[in-house]
């Protein structure tokens, strides 16, 4: 555990909680992609199956349980409790175009051809692109609520901090996980355009809106 890793995990946690609170407080999931949230629930489910097979630390177990629990709570709020406010007409990204290729790639490029390891690999690849339906929704509506942009910012910062964590671990522990690193770089790059808008607009007090 190093400072980048801890800060990354906390940023990830902050993102998840910001989203849950936003939906709960406003009683609305307008502007939120339910599809991205289903993908994240799938990511956590397939990645944390090792909860059943190996114990790493209390911290590790606690965070995994919280991430999974929050992911399903978010999906529940979007598709059940506040279904009436769900922006289904704009949330039209075809997720099969992500899940199918990512599933194929997980079978082809993995550390070990075993069920748990393939599912872990699948989750890593899927996480790197799971935000695309959300970004697609924003590009369709042309705007995002400020609180939604805070959520996205925390989520992007989390993966960027993990990149620093991997640099740290490479130098000080000789740890090197090519699959996680490549997927993490891809994931971080997907947020770059958003980071730019966040810094130039949201941080200056303006609403994030895209030019028509």
């Amino acid at each position: 555990m190093n400072i980048f890793r801890l800060a990354g995990d906390l940023s990830h946690l902050a993102a998840i909680i910001i989203l849950l609170l936003k939906i709960w407080k406003t009683r609305s999931c307008a502007g939120i992609s339910g599809k991205s949230q289903i993908l994240f629930a799938l990511v956590f489910t397939t990645r944390y199956l090792d909860l059943l097979t190996s114990f790493i630390s209390l911290y590790n177990t606690f965070m995994k349980v919280v991430y999974i629990g929050c992911a399903y709570a978010t999906v529940y709020l979007i598709y059940m409790k506040f279904k009436a406010t769900y922006d289904g007409n704009h949330d039209t990204f075809r997720v099969e175009f992500l899940v199918v290729p990512v599933g194929g790639l997980a079978f082809l490029v993995n550390h070990d051809f075993s069920p748990l390891e393939i599912l872990w690999t699948f989750s890593i690849y899927l996480e790197s692109v799971a935000i695309l339906p959300q970004l697609f929704l924003i590009s369709k509506t042309g705007e995002a609520e400020t609180i939604t942009t805070h959520y996205l910012f925390c989520l992007g910062v989390y993966r960027a901090l993990y990149l620093f964590n991997w640099i740290w671990r490479f130098y000080f522990e000789g740890f090197f996980d090519m699959i996680a690193i490549v997927a993490g770089v891809v994931q971080t790059i997907l947020y770059c355009d958003f980071f730019y808008l966040y810094v130039t607009k949201v941080l200056k007090g303006k609403k994030l809106s895209l030019p028509a």
């Binding site: 090792d50 790493i56 991430y67 075993s114 964590n165 996680a180």
Partner: peptide, 10 residues
């Protein structure tokens, strides 16, 4: 590294 012992990152 032993890949069967699980991944320590989240």
């Amino acid at each position: 590294t032993d890949k069967t012992t699980g991944h320590d990152e989240l």
